[in-house]
Simulated scan of single mutants.
Amino acid sequence: MNKQQIRDYLLSYTDTERSALSQKSDPFNIETNEELSYNKTLDHAISKNEKMRDFLNDSQLLIVKHARFSSLPPHSHDYIEMCYVYSGKIDMVINSEKISLNQGDFCLLDTGVIHQILDTAEKDILINILIKREYFSTKMVSKIAHNSTLSKFAIDALSEDQKHNQFIVFETVNHEFIEDAIFGILTHYLEPSIFSKEVIDTYMMIIFSELLRSFHEKKVQYYQSHNQLYIGDILTYIEQRQGNCTLSDLARVFNFNSNYLSRFIKKNVGKSFIDLIQEIRLNQATTLLRTTDLSIEAIIQQSGYKNINFFYKKFYAVFHESPKDYRKRLQQLGDSL
């Protein structure tokens, strides 16, 4: 399917939308003021929807278009829901708080949170990506955070915000890029072919990475507007220099006392400045081991280590194998796929 065919699909009326337009009964046949559980809400849809049955049984990802010209009563469910506004405006009530989402916005809903979607009109197109929790952690979070201290920190901060609020709204800064990724997912989801699953996984990682970037930039703007130091700025500075900086360098750049900065890093990251530098350098080393044919000696040098024995000691302490065995194991794993 090309982009125009995807657009036509999203704009076309579903049976549920035709029913709503003809003023028939509620598509779920439920009183709108009833607080509903996950299974209650979907009982009527599941029996007629093979993809929904597959998702509940063993699939990890389901994509559905929300039915326009109707509302969805308060409900909760046991999967993570990622809502994307393709066009128009979507009004939701989440934990009794009214939220308005505009075109390009995402809303990430945790499991168990009570939410409802208010009346929608012709141009209000909402795409719901339903995600099993195990998919969210193994396919997306773990891979994105694999080699970046900043990504790990952003994901932890995101998790804390979601744990506190049970939902997060992302006002995306690169709407066209996100839209292209959504088109890519829908193309392979609606007309699956060989490797479609892998392509969808990749697009999902791209989307989540963009949402993380949006979340990080929003945090940066907030702290800057309040004239406060943001730990994300420090992590960005260190990672951009691949760990080749000192605490004195940081203190000078950010105009803070070295002792204060050391305590600030420990409080916000949970590790000392020295341990943080070692983590970033080891991340750089593992990236080079996986993606290049450079000699281990060259990798050690590019990762900022001057003492070879010290590098081997640190590497083994973290990965429980030598750099050579690490590279060999990953090469064998790649050959077996």
Rank of each mutant, 00 (worst) to 15 (best):
M1K: 11
L11E: 10
T14C: 08
D15N: 14
E17K: 02
R18P: 01
A20Q: 11
A20H: 03
D26E: 14
F28T: 06
N33V: 00
S37C: 07
S37D: 01
K40P: 03
T41I: 11
A45S: 13
A45D: 12
A45K: 11
S47C: 07
S47E: 04
K48S: 15
E50D: 08
E50K: 11
R53N: 04
F55S: 02
L56D: 06
L62S: 02
L72F: 14
P73D: 07
P74Q: 14
H77K: 04
D78A: 07
I80N: 06
M82Y: 09
C83P: 10
I90M: 03
V93E: 05
V93N: 09
N95F: 05
E97V: 10
K98E: 13
K98F: 06
I99P: 02
L101P: 03
L101I: 07
N102C: 12
G104A: 14
C107F: 05
D110C: 11
T111P: 02
E122G: 08
K123E: 11
L126H: 00
I129K: 00
K132N: 02
Y135H: 05
T138R: 08
A145G: 10
T149N: 09
S151M: 07
K152H: 08
F153Y: 05
I155T: 06
S159M: 15
S159D: 14
K163Y: 07
Q166P: 10
Q166Y: 06
F167T: 09
F170M: 03
E171Q: 11
T172C: 15
T172L: 15
E176R: 05
I178R: 03
L190H: 06
I194Q: 08
F195N: 12
K197W: 08
M204D: 02
M205H: 01
I206K: 01
I206F: 04
S209L: 00
S214N: 15
H216R: 01
K218N: 10
Q221V: 07
S225L: 10
G232A: 07
D233N: 15
E239V: 02
G243W: 04
T246C: 08
S248G: 15
D249N: 14
D249G: 13
F256Y: 10
S258I: 12
Y260K: 07
Y260T: 04
L261P: 00
I265V: 09
K267G: 11
L276P: 00
L276D: 02
N283P: 01
L288F: 14
L288N: 06
L289R: 08
T291S: 14
T291P: 03
I296M: 04
S303A: 05
K306R: 05
N307H: 11
F310P: 01
K313H: 06
K324E: 07
Q331Y: 13
L337K: 15
L337A: 15
